[in-house]
Amino acid sequence: MKLAISMTGESLDAPFDARFGRAAQFCLVEPESGVCELVANPARDASGGAGVQAAQLLASQGVTAVVSGAYGPKAWKTLHAAGIRALLAPDSAHTPTGREMLEQFCAGTLREADAASHDGHHGG
């Protein structure tokens, strides 16, 4: 399987990005090996529908689950249609690294977003 983690920086030890559609990049990782492949998010500066575009990118990369901070309704719907599990990072006082997210994923402690977790950023 292939997991995507929204990231602000360029390695798994960089801070995780709580935004989905506007994330700087995604780290695509196979949990078994822990090998990380970076994919820039072309949607980060999209004028609208960033979540839709980001979700399609992950679908085209064969991703089966994603970890991010929140999903808008269009992003969630697109991920759902693509059969990609949308997982939520827990609320925390400090910004976790990508590696911490990966560990929590492997430990099975991440909650699945069962619907959009925010109401979308219009025009954004």
């Binding site: 004028s47 609208g48 950023h121 219009h122 025009g123 954004g124």
Partner: peptide
């Protein structure tokens, strides 16, 4: 004024 600039300001 499609809301894009509004969103950028808020972001």
């Amino acid at each position: 004024n499609s809301g894009k600039l509004v969103t950028a300001v808020k972001r």
